[in-house]
Structures are given as C-alpha cells and as structure tokens.
Amino acid sequence: MSTQSLITPLGDEVYEIDTQLAGHPGITAGYLIRSDRPCLVEPGTSGSAPTVRRALTELGIGPRDLATVVVTHIHLDHAGGVGDIARMYPQAEIVVHEKGARHLADPQRLMRSARMVYGDLLDTLFGELKPTEAARIRAVEETGVIDLGGGRRLQSHYSPGHAKHHIGLLDSLTGDLYVGDAAGVYIPETADVRPATPPPDFDLDTALASLEKFRALRPQRLLFAHYGPVEAVEDTLDRSAEELRIWVEAVRDARDQGLDLDHAVAAVQERTAGRYRAYGPDADPELAGKYEMLSGVRSNVAGIMHSLDKHA
C-alpha cells in the first residue's frame, strides 16, 4: 500500500492514518493534527510504527517536529507503538491517563498479561511495547489540556468503562471527539456499531456514564480508532449504548442460568443475529473476520462475565 493511500484528509489539518494492525487495512486508525504544535492521537501497535513514520513524513512532519503523542488508553492496538514513536520523535511529549502512565514507562507487567491472553499471536498482532522515559510522559486526570498551538487545544475527558485508563479528546477548533474504544467499534463499510467489552475493566454503568459524558460535550464528529470519522453523533452514541445493554442482558441471562462462557457466547450470537450487516449472510467474510480478530465475541463476553462476577 502506498503512503498516500494510508492518509485521508478530514479537514482543518486533521489527517486519518491507517496504522495497519497486523498488516490489515481499515481496522486501526491514528490521527495527525497538523497544527502549530503537531499532535499524533493513537500511534497504534509497535508493528505500526514504521507505517506511521512514513505517513508523518509524507505530511511534512520530521523527527523533531512532532510535539505530542496522545493515547486514549494503553491497550496494545492503541498504545503498543508509543515507545517506538517516542524514539523516532525525541521532542514529543507523551500524554496518557494517570492510571496508564506507569505501564508506558515500565511495560513488563502489561506485556506479561498480554502474552498470557494472546500467546504467540501477540507478536503477530501487536509486537512489543517498548518503555518510554518517564520524564517524557505527562499523566492527565479527570480532565487535561494538550496545547496544539495558535489557541487550538485538545481537552481530555476521563471516560472509563472500556478500560480504567481511558480518555476521550475534544478538539476546540473542530469539535472532533476522539472516542478511542469507549463508544465501541464502528465498521464503516456497514455503519455497524458493536461493543468493545474486554476483561478486566469493563463495567456497564461506568461505560454508559462515559457515553453520556461524550454526549454532553456536544461534539460535531466522532473519530473512532476502529474505524474512522462519524458525523451522526447522537444516533451513534445511542446505538453504542443500546448494543452494550443488549450484550450485557444476554450474558446476564446466560449466567443466571448457570451457563458457562461457551454457552454465553452462543446466547449473545443468537440475541444479536441480524443486528450487524458486517456479520450477515451476504457479508464479506474477510470483513467480519478482521473485526472478530480485533474485538471478538468471546473476548467481549468474557469481559462482561468478569464484570458480572465482580458485582455478584
């Protein structure tokens, strides 16, 4: 894929970059805000770092030009490339929620946990998160501000539910809201919205509260890491909340019947049959397959089961 085909201009010096998770196009997006103080949101995986560098070079951002790298949360499909990008762009400050900061400075515990989940597939999908100098990391709390220069700024808003270290980011100029995974996974080919509820942090009430927080910010557009820009803000946030409730209700019913994970997965699949065009009988199996790899039913159901067990 040529460098130019990785880049989609979105207006007002915002550029979507296809970060090519495990070589797959159209599944993970980073965003460059080419302002007076250029900012990269969501660098993607370690394996994505060379792709991101090529795109930034194409957009005129040299090694000493990038001012800030921001991650919505520290899951490896979003933040796995932070250490690599920090080395490539030595002037860039790294911004992350305070609950994730220590894992960027010392990723050993995070990588051990990830390897337990993914096994050998970890290297293919994500690669190794490399440490970032602690002095270059800025942790934000409930809110924070990233200076984009010229009076433009990103304001961070703590938005847990998907992960306890998750933030959303609102651009003061455009009204774009970078939603990370807090609003789930958006499939642009079919306009489907599916939940992203992996263990160990998922919590329904917290996730729904974060969606309401996003709504109250009155964004003009949602920018999904998976995948791309969405202008139907209210409808998409409504759908995101609806899907969360449906999945949790299906898993709760299965759990109340004493059913195991496999049966809970089957219950969700039955309850949601026909809800997603990407998974329908006439859908492209490759499209469904790549999103299943990213945010699979089994992983999401396991996260919901874990949450219900915690509250029991």
Rank of each mutant, 00 (worst) to 15 (best):
R37C: 10
D36A: 14
I137A: 04
R102A: 15
S295R: 05
P199L: 03
G296I: 05
Y118L: 09
A225W: 14
A191R: 14
D260S: 13
E42H: 12
L66A: 00
F214D: 04
T45C: 04
H24W: 15
S35I: 01
A191Y: 13
E42T: 10
E16L: 15
D176M: 11
E234W: 08
D106P: 03
D176A: 15
G303P: 05
I85R: 03
D18M: 06
G151I: 02
H24M: 15
V95I: 12
E286T: 14
G30A: 09
K310D: 08
V268D: 00
L211V: 09
L110T: 04
P285T: 10
K99C: 13
P188G: 11
Y31Q: 06
A267N: 07
R271C: 00
Q20E: 13
A312N: 09
G258M: 06
V96Q: 00
P90W: 04
G80C: 01
A182S: 15
G258I: 07
M88C: 03
A302P: 02
L287K: 03
L66G: 00
I246N: 00
R298A: 02
L294A: 10
M1G: 15
V82H: 02
K213M: 14
L223Q: 13
G184D: 04
L125N: 06
A79K: 01
D147Y: 04
A29E: 11
L237V: 03
A312K: 11
E141Q: 15
